[in-house]
């Protein structure tokens, strides 16, 4: 089952930590966003393999934008 991870708030994509094909588990950081002058890790709540990273470093994401897909 695919699990879509979406942005919780407007932010800049500061760093991509994981890559497509990486195995991840609950609590792992996928991407680090920058917002409210804070570095905010985007974490997965499910175990699986990253099927897609939908953002690039430097992008601006809006609330609800797709960041990654875990399968």
């Amino acid at each position: 089952m695919a699990d879509e991870i979406r942005a919780e708030m407007v932010a800049n994509v500061w760093k991509i930590v994981k890559a497509v094909g990486d195995e991840v588990e609950d609590g792992d950081t996928l991407v680090i966003l920058e917002s409210m002058k804070m570095e905010i890790p985007v974490i997965t709540e499910s175990d699986g393999v990253i099927a897609k990273i939908a953002v690039n470093e430097g992008d601006v994401v809006q609330e609800g934008d797709l960041i990654a897909v875990i399968e």
């Binding site: 919780e8 905010i40 890790p41």
Partner: peptide, 8 residues
Amino acid sequence: NPMRLGGC
């Protein structure tokens, strides 16, 4: 919780 929405 700073981990979510920066703790806002």
